[in-house]
Design a binder for these strands. Structure first.
Lengths: 350, 350
DNA sequence: TTGAAAGCGCTACCAT
DNA sequence: ATGGTAGCGCTTTCAA
């Protein structure tokens, strides 16, 4: 960070005392109870119009903002939905989904808060109790955990701390938690079947070596295997780091592999590999068919245009509704939903 | 969402009462005060080892998790740093930065919470008071607002609600808030100078038509203009949507433009445009030089390899230190820092 | 070394 | 229609 020359700047006003509902009450000449009634529009109690006005004006003049923590403490529950940071590097698809979810939950009166305790080096394990404890301290009414690694005891901890619903969005179910299953096995299966349908018989499957991707890569690989089970086709695992050098290495050793198709994990790895293959003089799709996933824009810009598996997360509205339902009936048995739409988009590379 | 058949699932236990420090005290046979001392390791008070043990064991057995809101209420301040959702579509660079920041603030004892009130269609304006109010209700000790659009009255509202520091990370300063200035004018300037140095004289600058990008695009354009001011070079604004069709349209009308270089806003737009140009038979960089920004991996995979402006956000550690400093001395005048490292990486496209 | 008690800001019950 | 007041879970001074 570089300090740049600055013109003298007016110091901010000394920290004023934060106005409370008591201040509003005093200023409006009413009791705190009345203030609360006016500002929260309690259903049962009626306040006269003049009083109501005085209170609202006093609140405005003071810049009064209610204290969410105090409210939660008193009322025994918050409207906070905590979304934890995904355990994997999230892409544009996830962010669009989260945006939608936030908006939909907002309409239902919830406040969405993201907590990014990304598991760092040296952490004891995925979603160690430490992380879950931090979440629990916030006393969210619901917790959504995208990705994998949520442990059953963490679910327990959260529920015992008052969370009325715990939901996972990922490849596995966790006891006690509602599950939105992203069925990556099905993604692999679609990919495998597509390549097999196109007449390919020696299929490679890229498995990123970067940590955090196993969650998707493993079931996708299994899906491809299942797709060609009972046929003459073979499936070969292709570890690959997201780096030019590694792709070049893989491409250089391509011959002996004898592969005629690759499901490249996603569009970005596909682009990486396509480039390396082409640089090595191999033809796509003549020599080797290439299939990505995610349907990113960049796939359409490649030559040949990249075939891909288009993925679709659940609509934010649907998920918001599920959260709301779960919160209203915390004792209901966990729901399980399959939420990952997967569809092959056939373009030119396969 | 598709409901899949499920085996009957054990219903979760009826919502147990959440254990409080009173429960821990009772179980350990001590007072709540003692529990607090033990669990928070108060500096002044010494608790005997046996008592300490009993308390800790009781807490463990009960699955006790302190109530952050209650604690904040009593102590008068929280350790929550609120990071609002960026007002622009955030890329991998931002996410890496945020990760780092979170980690660094965590080490300083803060809890980072992201609040995504992304300004949606129909919202009254950028960061309307509504959004700021929601933030203020959480009574964060500090608020970091990436992007632009934070209004001075929102800063005021936040400070009057007890936020000891408000920081912006973006192209503009806001009165009352610390500013981490991402100097995109400098990015444009570097880009313009590079292209001019390479002998280009008719320079196009891509300006995305998608909303939200103006914040960057406008100053970048201005920077290019400044870089060639006083020379014979010209600068042409090139509105472009992130869609194949629009790029094709632009490329089809290329001739009359008479441009020999383009600063393409970022690597993704650069890739889009490069493809369209090449499809149109134009040579990069012979006919037209192309410069991206962000230094994404995909730039290295293009042919020719994409020249780009490498951007660097401040280190999470530095920023965490600044937040901490600002929180400790809330009356200090706002700091201003320029935090965007910009450096041209010359490859083959320019 | 430990406990009693006040009080943070707020809501909701019960009076008036 | 409005006010008094208890108490949510916690920390911290003051006494014992």
């Amino acid at each position: 960070m570089v300090q740049i020359p600055r013109t003298p700047d007016p110091a901010p006003p000394a920290p004023l005392p934060v106005p409370t509902s008591t201040d509003v009450a005093r200023r409006a000449g009413v009791s705190r109870a009345t203030v609360s009634y006016v500002l929260n529009g309690s259903g049962t109690v009626r306040i006269s119009e003049p009083t109501r006005r005085r209170v609202q004006q006093a609140a405005r003049e003071l810049g009064y903002v209610p204290h969410a923590a105090a409210r939660a403490l008193r009322s025994g529950h918050s409207r906070m939905v905590l979304v934890t940071a995904p355990s994997y590097p999230a892409g544009p698809i996830y962010h669009r989904f989260l945006d939608e979810l936030q908006w939909a939950l907002g309409r239902l009166g919830y406040t969405v808060v993201q907590h990014g305790t990304a598991p760092r080096h040296g952490a004891r394990g995925p979603y160690s109790d430490d992380a879950a404890r931090t979440w629990a301290e916030l006393r969210p009414v619901a917790v959504l955990v995208p990705g994998s690694g949520l442990r059953p005891d963490a679910v327990d901890l959260l529920r015992r701390s008052g969370a009325r619903a715990v939901l996972t969005l990922g490849p596995e179910t966790v006891p006690g938690a509602h599950a939105l299953l992203t069925d990556h096995e099905a993604v692999g299966h679609r990919a495998g079947r597509h390549l097999h349908d196109r007449g390919r018989r020696r299929i490679g499957v890229v498995v990123p070596t970067e940590p955090g991707h196993e969650v998707f890569a493993t079931p996708r690989l299994a899906g491809v295997r299942r797709a060609v089970a009972g046929t003459t086709a073979t499936v070969t695992e292709l570890p690959l780091a997201y780096a030019e050098g590694d792709a070049a290495r893989l491409a250089a050793d391509w011959g002996p592999l004898g592969l005629d198709a690759v499901f490249a994990y996603n569009d970005e790895y596909a682009m990486l590999l396509m480039r390396a293959l082409q640089d090595e003089g191999l033809g796509v799709p003549e020599d080797v068919a290439l299939l990505g996933a995610d349907d990113l824009m960049l796939g359409r810009l490649l030559r040949p245009r990249l075939s891909t598996v288009h993925l679709e997360l659940p609509s934010g509205r649907d998920l918001a509704a599920l959260v709301d339902r779960a919160v209203r009936d915390p004792a209901a048995p966990p729901e399980r939903h399959t939420v990952l739409g997967a569809q092959v988009v056939h373009r030119e590379s396969s």
